[in-house]
Design a binder for these strands. Structure first.
Length: 380
DNA sequence: TGGAGGGCTGGTAGTTGCAT
DNA sequence: ATGCAACTACCAGCCCTCCA
């Protein structure tokens, strides 16, 4: 008898049991907020110290409950003033429970290490030093509240100094989180709204699109996902969105000059990316991606715009997959190509409940997602 | 290890149903 | 008829998982 499959099952069982987390991104908000508080308050010998994972764990360990400030009172470098460095967390119940569950620390090791390397990096170190040496008593509050207002703001963590939200705001992602904006729904208006900010008019495909999607039932009338597959509705959705994406791609090609995007369009593209990543007005929101033991940072100020202007950018379209996709490619001076962002259609067989039983429906979505090049052009 | 395809969750607004 | 509670669809948030 071969025991190997059993052992493998057992191992995967253990892994799943151990590291089944409700939402890694939500939990990471709390970890990063605690790490920032640790950094801002770790002062000794007139210097801001490097924080380590245990400092962050200690801060997290001091959390009493949601929305309650964990406070650290620390001396200013002058020793004549005291700063209060606090942080508070607001997130859904389950991620919060996971955050404060000491048994899950091992599962979040990568996030802790990534958060530590982020707060120890130069910008945060300098910020911490400035607050510690300004010879004032500052009231500093790090707020993780990204899940509170999902429609109103992209900011997940903000640092409030003496009541002022300054330039220190973060939009957070973790490994696997590339999506940063989307439009949902099968109405043609959804497609229109998705492409409009890029100055792309897809109305040429409207009639055909509508003709197809009107055959897709609204709501959640299906009793199983198989029933959706069997009805061929995913294919219909794919065909309909392909029409839109082809139209969009044609327009994108018309904005090329010598095989790269013209300046006017690049500006629109930069705006689109910035708005999707950090919101409309926030030049000082940074996009922070926490990787296991590491991080990437992107900002969308002047430097980003000038990098975009210089960059060799062009679109490619893919229809070979299940759903259409357009990628904006960045090609550097050595000819290396990488994806800046991609627009992708997807169809979800969304679940819901009605009459006490589980029901399913067809949910059409359009995603805007980051590629590696975004952190090159917007990286700091 | 990164790309391709996909799912779960929760807030909000709108609708429905029932008690008054 | 009306008010409130329960229910649901929509849609934006978040990655997750699988496979080459």
């Amino acid at each position: 008898m071969n025991m190997k499959p059993i052992m493998e099952d057992w191992r995967s069982f253990l892994t799943e049991q151990k590291c089944k987390l409700p939402n890694r991104g939500d939990i990471a908000e709390g970890i990063v907020a605690a790490a920032i508080a640790a950094k801002l308050s770790k002062r000794a010998g007139g210097k801001i110290q490097m924080v380590d994972v245990s400092d962050v764990i200690a801060q997290v360990g001091n959390i009493q409950q949601m929305n309650t400030v964990v406070s650290n009172v620390v001396p200013d470098f002058s020793n004549e003033h005291e700063d209060t460095v606090g942080f508070s967390i607001s997130m859904p119940k389950r991620p919060f429970a996971a955050l404060v569950d000491k048994n899950l620390l091992a599962c979040l090791q990568g996030e802790y290490e990534g958060a530590v390397s982020y707060v120890n990096s130069a910008p945060m170190h300098k910020f911490a030093t400035r607050l510690a040496s300004n010879k004032k008593s500052n009231d500093i509050l790090v707020k993780a509240a990204g899940t509170e207002d999902q429609k109103g703001t992209k900011v997940d963590i903000s640092i409030v100094v003496d009541g002022n939200k300054l330039r220190n705001q973060l939009s957070l992602k973790v490994k696997g989180g590339n999506q940063f904006a989307q439009k949902t729904g099968k109405a043609f208006e959804v497609q229109k709204a998705f492409w409009e900010p890029l100055g792309i008019d897809v109305s040429g495909a409207e009639q055909q699109y509508v003709n197809i999607v009107e055959n897709i039932p609204t709501g959640k009338p299906f009793v199983s996902r198989d029933e959706i597959d069997a009805g061929g509705y995913l294919k219909m959705a794919s065909q309909a969105t392909s029409l839109i994406y082809q139209q969009a791609y044609k327009t994108l090609e018309s904005k090329l000059q010598n095989n790269r995007f013209e300046a006017e369009f690049v500006k629109l593209l930069a705006d689109y990316i910035k708005t999707g990543a950090v919101g409309p007005e926030s030049e000082f929101v940074e996009l922070v991606k926490i990787l296991p033991g590491d991080f990437k940072r992107a900002r969308f100020g002047k430097k980003f715009y000038s990098e975009m202007e210089k960059a060799n950018l062009y679109p490619i379209m893919s229809t070979s997959g299940a759903y259409p996709k357009i990628q904006i490619i960045y090609e550097d001076s050595d000819g290396n190509k990488s994806v800046l962002v991609q627009m992708r259609a997807k169809v979800e067989r969304a679940s819901g409940k009605s009459g006490g039983s589980k029901k399913y429906g067809v949910l059409m979505r359009n995603y805007l997602e980051t590629g590696p090049a975004l952190y090159k052009l917007a990286g700091v």
